[in-house]
Computed example of a mutant assay.
Amino acid sequence: MATEVYLVRHGETMFNQLNKVQGWSDSPLTVKGINDLKVTARNLSQVHFDKMYSSDLKRAIDTAHLIQDTNEVSVPSKMKKLPAFREVFFGSFEGDDIDQTWEKVAVAGGMKPERNVDKIIETLGFEKFRDATKKADPRHLAEDSKDLDERMNQAVEQLTKETKGLGRILIVSHGDFIKSLGLHYWKGAKNKEIIPFPENGSVARAVIHDNDKFEIVDYNVKSSELNNL
């Protein structure tokens, strides 16, 4: 039995609003974030989920509970947290200004200072971009491509085991992590280095097939477009 997965990015947070690197650090959902999530939740209120999950970071947990509380057709159950679905770890850069961080990453990758992350990824490639982030981190704690690939594989494997026999599930995760999944598993990705960064409250829809193959079939579906899924 195939399992349908609705993969939701959490709502806007204070760090998102302040243009700060967030990663494993946490900041609360903003008023805008909550209001935008209400649209997502309302448009998912008639979608039946056999189980709901979230990463173990509070912004994801709060998002998942808001969606669960609004849903009218799913049986309420205890929310299970899956740490493997937490955001990419940025090490010493967490809490720093995003633009200044990307400049340092670009230089570590052999480029001139550059603040446009898409240009950096297009120049270096996604794996080298991750490796440059770890290299630029003064303490070298940030996840590089190997670290992230291992955790992403673990996350997909765990989700596959967790959802055996379930028809449809929801899991709330994070922008960089969902984008990383998209680069690996979205069949609609035409450029394997550059795909859109998922919006807050957006949904990626995936299928775990009977042979345990994980495949993303819709990506970055905005809250206002969820009725088209």
Rank of each mutant, 00 (worst) to 15 (best):
M52Q: 11
I67F: 08
F15R: 08
H48A: 14
G33S: 06
L18D: 01
T30Y: 02
F15T: 00
L29T: 09
G33L: 07
K38H: 14
L44K: 04
N71T: 02
Q68H: 12
K20H: 01
M52T: 12
G33P: 07
K78E: 14
A41I: 10
K20Q: 01
L66W: 12
T30K: 05
N35Q: 14
I34S: 07
D26P: 08
E87N: 10
D69A: 14
W24P: 05
Y53M: 10
T70A: 15
V21N: 00
K80R: 15
K32P: 01
I61W: 03
L57W: 08
L18I: 01
R42D: 14
S25Y: 06
L29E: 06
R42K: 15
A60R: 01
R59Q: 00
E87C: 06
S55T: 04
D36C: 00
L44Q: 02
I34Q: 03
F15D: 00
E87P: 10
E72I: 13
K38Y: 14
N35M: 13
L44M: 13
F49P: 00
K38S: 11
N43M: 08
R59F: 04
I34N: 08
Q22Y: 05
T40H: 10
L82F: 08
P28D: 09
V47D: 06
A41N: 05
S55L: 01
V47S: 09
D50L: 12
S54V: 12
M79W: 13
G33R: 01
Q46H: 15
L37H: 08
L37V: 04
S55Y: 03
S27P: 09
Q46R: 15
K32G: 03
F85N: 06
D26M: 07
G33I: 03
V88I: 14
T30M: 00
V75E: 15
A41H: 08
R86L: 01
N16G: 04
D56A: 10
R42G: 07
I34F: 09
V73T: 14
Y53H: 00
P76H: 10
N71G: 08
L57D: 04
T63N: 02
V47C: 10
F85Y: 14
K51H: 14
P76C: 08
H48K: 15
K58M: 09
S77T: 14
V88D: 02
L57H: 05
